[in-house]
């Protein structure tokens, strides 16, 4: 059911944990299953300089969080904001349809954490148009 890449991210999740005083923070709930993910961003020069998260959900949710964190670490806010659930799923070798919402949860957590960052930093150029 799961690809080796997914199982690897599930077994050894990257960037797991929390950040003190994050620049951006979000906690999102997946509407279908009720599972949760919380995400912590550190932003330096309009780039994601650090990212941490914790996830309560199925193996696909944990792997999606891990993969998404790898995909946006070091990226600009703009690039990070464009990450979609499809891309996360693709990088994980393709999620079964019933598990697609788990990748969406990871992408929407990033989006929500960027929103939180922008509420605190409305004058940052990225945030003026986000």
């Amino acid at each position: 059911m799961y690809s080796p890449v997914l199982l690897d991210h599930f077994t050894n999740p990257r960037n797991i944990g929390t950040l003190d005083n994050p620049d951006g923070y979000a906690r999102v709930t997946s509407p279908g299953c009720g599972d949760q993910m919380e995400l912590f961003l550190r932003v330096t020069d309009e780039r994601i300089s650090d990212i941490r998260y914790r996830a309560f959900g199925c193996a696909a949710a944990i792997a999606s969080s891990s993969m998404a964190s790898e995909m946006i670490k070091g990226r600009t806010l703009e690039e990070a904001s464009r990450l979609t659930g499809e891309e996360v799923s693709e990088e994980l070798g393709g999620l079964p349809e019933a598990k697609f919402h788990c990748a969406i949860m990871a992408a929407s957590a990033i989006n929500a954490a960027l929103r939180d960052y922008c509420t605190k930093h409305p004058t940052v150029p990225f945030c003026t148009s986000f």
Binding site: I16, Q36, M37, E38, R54
Partner: peptide, 15 residues
């Protein structure tokens, strides 16, 4: 549990 936003290592509820 170490990955979970619901569980702190001291056993308290995190969220």
């Amino acid at each position: 549990r170490a990955l979970s936003p619901y569980y702190n290592s001291d056993g308290t509820v995190a969220l």
